[in-house]
Each structure stands twice: as structure tokens, then as C-alpha cells.
Design a protein around this nucleic acid. Structure first.
Ligand SMILES: NC(=O)c1ccc[n+]([C@@H]2O[C@H](COP(=O)([O-])OP(=O)(O)OC[C@H]3O[C@@H](n4cnc5c(N)ncnc54)[C@H](O)[C@@H]3O)[C@@H](O)[C@H]2O)c1
Ligand SMILES: NC(=O)c1ccc[n+]([C@@H]2O[C@H](COP(=O)([O-])OP(=O)(O)OC[C@H]3O[C@@H](n4cnc5c(N)ncnc54)[C@H](O)[C@@H]3O)[C@@H](O)[C@H]2O)c1
Lengths: 213, 213
DNA sequence: CCGGTCTCGGTACCCGGTTATCGATTCTAC
DNA sequence: GTAGAATCGATAACCGGGTACCGAGACCGG
């Protein structure tokens, strides 16, 4: 599955949550389509691929969509995850509620700074990074989020792989070198900002040329 | 231009910076290709679209690539930008060095909390959000980053649009409603985490079925 | 100097994502 | 009950990004 498609599914889910909170029980393909900038046709094909059936003149049942899309993304499972690096970024991530939304359960925080070890963030204690391997192994944690300086990330990742971690959400500005089979999802905030820059440049040049429609 | 293509250009740029720091002066299309998981053909077409010429048996001059890709993304320009919401996330963004890499110059910070107003982060003073409009107008700032709670984001965005802001980098978990022509680039960290969840589920099911190759 | 090899530039083709279209089904209105 | 509108499901057509391929230029070794 391509990234665009995956992103569409995620956006459907985000939108469904909103619709449900408004009391809606069903939704049509065209409604989902306009929010995504695609046609109803595309939406119907997306849902069809998940074996989701709708009813003519009624649409799709929101509850069905939520369950099926969620299970495809495997975000119902509460996979335990650890976060290493309780700086500004780490703290913001801990305090956000994205973990449960994406099927993770944030169960452990680690840092190397004595000033933060022993404190708690969002009720989760910050442990000494020196004790990391043991805790990870004992708890069977297979996912980790890295929010620490680029020059520390590779060494920490190596230790975590040894302890059994098989998937990383990496914020450090470095390409991690990991064994085959280990997943690294890099979160490069730079890219969002560069994309914004490009869109600004494009809009400005389009307006300078004058709208063509 | 599609998002995938844009992302490829950005990755070329990131990689070029690294190569240059290693003392390299030229790079071949195949070298750039393997890092991106595409063929040399695709890279040559990408570069050809930017009117970048290489030399047979030598490759492309890294300096040329950097300048042309950078200018396409318009990241040489140092556009002034303001950041609103100096919480954990805002602080992490201020302290990162992504702004200059993406063609922006972070010139102003705003918050509503008296406890942080008057302090400074990375040498930039935090101003009272009440004085936001005036400063934005006087400085001619047209870009803003929103790192504040979802229920405050729309009101702040409205005020900023009135003051002249025409592009947003939005971290609040809400779909901003803005006039036509105003750009909103949403940074949804949830998506990265959901993508990780999906990749984990896919790997696990693939392994269960056994490698097919 | 010359064949061999490497890599670029351009072209043709392919594939899959997207849209368009049409028949089938269900609900509403009278 | 029937006409009409709305919406789904399926299929076909379209389009553009990606790949394969080939000829041309550049460097190397002998
Ligand atoms: N584009 C992006 O993805 C992006 C954006 C912002 C920041 N970042 C990066 O995220 C990282 C964290 O940012 P931040 O503002 O929170 O930085 P920070 O300095 O505030 O936090 C880093 C934390 O990591 C801890 N740490 C250092 N070495 C460690 C180790 N070996 N084991 C465990 N913990 C260790 C430190 O004690 C500190 O608490 C930085 O590398 C920054 O460059 C990336
Ligand atoms: N997926 C994501 O994109 C993602 C991830 C993490 C956090 N977030 C969001 O980012 C936002 C900030 O996160 P955080 O951890 O820094 O929160 P935070 O509470 O630490 O910081 C919010 C800051 O905004 C300030 N603020 C509130 N109202 C304001 C106003 N009207 N004008 C100016 N400033 C105002 C507060 O004083 C505070 O300093 C939150 O909304 C959070 O949900 C999003």
C-alpha cells in the first residue's frame, strides 16, 4: 500500500471520530471525499478494499468504518512503547494523547540526566537510562521512541535493539543504522516546514502569473 | 508536483549536505537513487526537470544540485516567521535548527502565560500574545507556527490572518478554517505513529506467512 | 589511438492510482 | 404503488509517475 493511500485511511479515521462526536451514525462516500480532495469513487474503492459495504442512499455505518480501518492499521492493540530522552520534545510527546490513538501504550520513560531521573511526567516515572535494557527485556517492549540528541541516538538504538526493540519512532536528525527487520519511522519535522516553504513560493509565483481560471 | 516527488527533492538535499561534509564534489544518479529506493532513471528525470545537467561517467556537481534544489524549494530566502505557544513543543521547535534549513527566520515568540512572557528562548524574547497583531504588522511577518492547545488555535489563527499572516505551520489537533489563499500545513505527529503501527502489523503478518522470496 | 566501460539524456512503455460511467438498490414523495 | 432521486458497487478509461532501454559522450587502460 502506498503512503498516500495509508494517509487517506488515517484521515478517514480522524474525520469519523469528529462526525461521531457530532452524533452522526452514517456517512456517504462523497462526504469523506471532499475533505480529502478526492472523488467519491476513490473513497468507495478504498472502503471496498477493506470489504466494507455501504447501503445505497444511506452511506456507510460510521461504527463499521472505525472498527475496520482501526483494525487494518492495528491501532486497537495497545502495544507497549518506551520513550527515551525527556527533553522539551519528549515531554510534549508524553503529554499528548496520540499514543492511545495510534495503538500504543506509553509505559516507560528514560533519560540520562540525573536532574530528571526520578521525576514523573503525566504520571509516568522517568527511569535511569542505565537500567533501560533490563526493563525493556522484562516488560517485553518492542517499540521505542527516540527524542534525544542526534549524536546519542545511534548508541541508544543499538542498546535497545539488543534488548529486543524491533520498531523505532525516531526524532533525532540522523539515519539510524539497524539490522534487517527492524523498522525505523523517521519523523522529520524539517520536511513539513520545507513543504510549507515550497507551497508559499508556488502560491506567490502563481499569483504573479495571474490566476489561469 | 506530487508530495512524493517533493519529498524526494528534500531528501536529495539532506543527503547532499551529508556527502558534501564528507568532501565529495560530485554524485551519480544511482547513488542518490538507492537511498530513496528508486531507480537512477527517476533521479535523472527529477534533476532534468530542474534543468540540472550532469556529465557522463562523472555524475552531477553537488554544489549545483544544492543551489538549484534549494531555490526551487525557496529555502534560501529567510522568510520571517513567528511562533505562538511556548509550551514544551514550542520550546523544542525554537531550540531546533530547522528554521534556517527550510528558509525561515524565527523572529518572534508569543504566549499568553504571564509566567513565560518576558523570558527568552534561544535568545529570542517571549512577547505577550496580546501585542501580537501590532508586532506582526509592523514587521511584515507573513508566516506563523501554531504550537498551542486545539481550542485556542482557531481564535489565534483568525487574529493572525487579520494581522497579515498568510501561511501557517499548525501543530494543534484541529482543522483550521481560513480564507482562500491562506496556506495551512498541518503537522500531525499522530500520522507518523499510525504509520509505524501499520508497518509493524504488516511486518508481523508477513513474517507469519513466511518470506515469499 | 582505440576498444571497453561507465553514466548521462531522452524516449517508449508499463503499471497502478484516480476518475468517469453505468446499472442496481433503497428511500422519499405523492 | 410508482416515479424519481440518491447512493452504492463494479468496470472501464485516463493519466502521470516510475522503469527499462538505448544512443551519446567521457574517461580508462593498454
Ligand atoms: N525535525 C525533527 O525531527 C526535530 C525537531 C525538534 C527537535 N528534534 C531533535 O529531537 C531531539 C530532542 O529535542 P529536545 O528539544 O527535546 O532536546 P533536549 O536537549 O531538550 O532533550 C534531550 C534529552 O535527551 C536526554 N539524553 C541525552 N543523552 C541521553 C542518553 N544517552 N540516554 C538517554 N537520554 C539522553 C537529555 O538528558 C535530554 O533530557 C534533539 O536531537 C533535536 O535535534 C528533532
Ligand atoms: N500530533 C501533533 O501535532 C501534536 C503532538 C504534540 C502536541 N500537540 C499539540 O501541540 C500543542 C502544544 O503542545 P505543548 O505540549 O507545547 O502544550 P503546552 O500546554 O505545554 O503549551 C501550550 C502553550 O500555549 C500557550 N497558550 C495557550 N493559549 C494561548 C493563546 N491564546 N495565545 C498564546 N499562547 C497561548 C500556553 O500558555 C502554553 O505555553 C497542544 O495543542 C498539543 O495538543 C500536537
Amino acid at each position: 500500500m502506498h503512503r498516500e493511500t495509508l494517509q487517506r485511511y488515517m484521515n478517514y479515521l480522524l474525520l469519523l471520530t469528529k462526525l461521531k462526536s457530532e452524533g452522526r451514525a452514517t456517512v456517504t462516500s462523497d462526504e469523506l471525499a471532499v475533505r480529502e480532495g478526492v472523488t467519491g469513487s476513490r473513497v468507495r474503492q478504498d472502503l471496498s478494499a477493506l470489504r466494507i459495504l455501504g447501503k445505497p442512499r444511506q452511506g456507510y455505518r460510521i461504527a463499521d468504518l472505525e472498527i475496520l480501518i482501526s483494525s487494518m492499521l492495528d491501532i486497537l492493540s495497545a502495544k507497549p512503547v518506551a520513550l527515551v530522552g525527556i527533553g522539551n520534545l519528549g515531554r510534549a510527546l508524553v503529554l499528548s494523547d496520540i499514543w492511545s490513538h495510534a495503538g500504543f501504550d506509553l509505559v516507560a520513560l528514560f533519560d540520562a540526566d540525573p536532574a530528571v531521573i526520578g521525576t514523573a511526567v503525566a504520571g509516568i516515572p522517568v527511569r535511569d537510562a542505565a537500567t533501560m535494557e533490563r526493563f525493556i527485556q522484562e516488560q517485553g517492549i518492542e517499540s521505542a521512541c527516540l527524542a534525544l540528541p542526534a549524536d546519542k541516538a545511534q548508541a541508544v538504538a543499538d542498546r535497545l535493539v539488543n534488548a529486543g526493540v524491533r520498531a523505532f519512532w525516531n526524532f533525532a536528525l540522523i539515519d539510524l543504522d539497524v539490522p534487517a527487520g527492524i523498522i525505523v519511522e523517521n519523523q522529520r519535522l524539517e520536511q513539513g516546514l520545507m513543504a510549507l516553504s515550497f507551497r508559499i513560493a508556488k502560491r506567490n509565483s502563481d499569483q504573479a502569473r495571474g490566476p489561469q481560471d
